[in-house]
Computed example of a mutant assay.
Amino acid sequence: MKVGIMGGTFDPIHIGHLIAAQCAYEHAGLDEVWFMPTNVPPHKQHAPKATSQQRWDMVCCAVEGQAHFLPFDMELKKGGVSYTFDTVSLLRKEHPSIHFYYIIGADMVQYLPKWYKIDELVQLISFIGLGRPGYTLEMGQLPASLRHAVQLAEMPLIEISSTAIRQRKAEGKSIRHLVPDRVYDYIEGNGFYGS
């Protein structure tokens, strides 16, 4: 079985995340994609605006009814800082028969050499780097030990970010069509991200 891991703060989850997951799913012939909200991401300076429970609820809303997209709360349950190596080590112990693929933006691929315990990590998991139109990734710049672990998939250029969505909400602008309908209803119903 082949499973893609879509990690992120998801503050909030938006249609760009779902499109990225679908592109990776189709490109690599995955059986499922697990959406895993991070607890505390090591590379972000600011804490998420929404609570862990709210971010989890939004992920559940976003993937409901999509058989091959599943919410997965392992990092939220574990607590603390979320390092990919620690998460993947646990996943491999709990699901030894699954081949995991970590889904990342092509812009993150060039930073893989700086990831925590990357040499050990590439022995446990593969990566799907999602390319964007106009962005050229030089795979030759990656160390040879990493190149074999990364495959590139194309996705449409979607200029949506969780930060921009929160900003629009704070300015009193609509975020409809930027997030799935059920996520929109959840945000509106709970008054998140307002000014």
Results as ranks from 00 to 15, higher is better:
E94F: 05
I125A: 07
I5D: 00
I128L: 09
H27W: 05
K169Y: 13
E138P: 03
L18P: 02
V88S: 09
R182D: 05
D107C: 10
H68S: 15
R92P: 14
S52R: 08
V122P: 08
P71F: 03
T136V: 12
G8K: 14
I98W: 15
G7C: 07
L152A: 13
M36V: 12
T9V: 04
E138R: 11
V40D: 09
H17T: 07
G79M: 11
K169R: 15
N39L: 02
I187T: 01
I98C: 12
E26G: 05
S126A: 14
I158H: 04
A149C: 12
K93N: 15
D57R: 03
H17G: 07
K117P: 05
Q110P: 00
E32N: 10
M155D: 08
A153S: 14
A153D: 13
L130W: 13
S145D: 06
M139L: 11
T38E: 13
R55Q: 00
I128P: 06
F85T: 05
Q110S: 11
Q151P: 04
A170Y: 09
A24E: 09
G80W: 02
M155F: 10
K77S: 14
T136D: 13
Q53M: 06
T163G: 07
G16K: 01
I104V: 15
G29P: 04
D31F: 13
